[in-house]
Amino acid sequence: MKYISQICIIFGFTLLGEGLQRLVPVSIPASVYGLVLLFLALMTGVVKLEQVKEAGDFLRSLLPLLFVGPTVGILEHWELIRGELFPILLIVVSTTAVTFGISGVVTQRINEKGGKTE
């Protein structure tokens, strides 16, 4: 029964997220609502860690695998992107490098300046 109730809680929060996405008129995905609500529920003790832990760890371990199917779907759009392949790749590579650099360097500078208590 443990796994059944764990799955039920996790899917319940997913359902709440899906519901909110449909009701709230901004472009925030269901997973964001669900994640924030589950985190708040854990913080406030409404949901205990042991009520979601094992099923949650299992579902999270599936994440990389779930990327495969949708990526294969790119073959469908090959005609559309073929002509723009170079700019798309350039944008993806350059912005990834810049995002990595800026977020890391800014965080390190702020932590160095103090404010972090070891």
Binding site: I10, T14, L35, D57
Partner: peptide, 13 residues
């Protein structure tokens, strides 16, 4: 593929 959403919700853990 819909499991992606609950799996992402679990990042709260």
């Amino acid at each position: 593929s819909w499991l992606m959403t609950p799996a992402t919700v679990c990042l709260a853990i």
